[in-house]
């Protein structure tokens, strides 16, 4: 690795930030703090390596446009929270897990395999027809937030995903 390992203080600071932003958006981090802090360390390692915090539990080739779906929080977090009460890494967990009514485990991979992802990148995205609205509608791929304006916001106000995580919805 080229960069130095992230420092304990950096990891702790990022953990606090992610936790605060999660709670503000109605999400929860895994209450197993040692496990969670280790995942945050992984996010920082990936950020140093690739220039963006890609999922610590998925392999990256360091190409941002191919990894947009796995920049944390990933596109699969919310469906996984709904179905399995945790994201793929178990960094984020459901209310029930936070309240210790349920425990989490390793869950199946929802991200399509490489071959399918490549095909999807090459093809056009399925968009609703132009309805003649005064503004286009943009959808955050992470949390589903919708907004009608000329361009997507720089950062999603709900889940803090960056502008390039938005898709044209209408």
């Amino acid at each position: 690795m080229s960069a130095a390992a992230p420092l304990t203080e950096e990891i702790q600071a990022r953990y606090e930030k992610i936790k605060r932003e999660a709670e503000e958006g109605g999400y929860h981090l895994n209450p197993d703090q040692a496990f969670t802090v280790n995942l945050v360390r992984g996010l920082l390692v990936n950020e140093q390596r690739y220039g963006y915090p890609s999922c610590p539990c998925r392999i990256s080739f360091g190409k941002r446009d191919e990894d947009l779906d796995i920049i944390c929080p990933c596109d699969y977090r919310d469906p996984d929270l709904d179905e399995f009460n945790a994201c793929y890494c178990a960094l984020y967990v459901s209310d029930a897990v936070l309240k210790k009514e349920l425990s989490v485990g390793s869950i199946p991979e929802r991200r399509p395999p490489r071959s399918e992802r490549k095909a999807a990148l090459a093809g056009s995205s399925g968009r609703l027809t132009d309805m003649g609205l005064p503004f286009p509608v943009w959808r955050c791929r992470v949390c589903g937030y919708l907004c009608a304006r000329d361009t997507p916001p720089l950062v999603c106000p709900v889940c803090k995903a960056t502008k390039d995580r938005f898709e044209r919805f209408i």
Binding site: N38, G42, P56, C57, C89, A90, S106
Partner: peptide, 9 residues
Amino acid sequence: ALSTCGWCA
């Protein structure tokens, strides 16, 4: 495994 992954660890 991945060095950054909790389940791998």
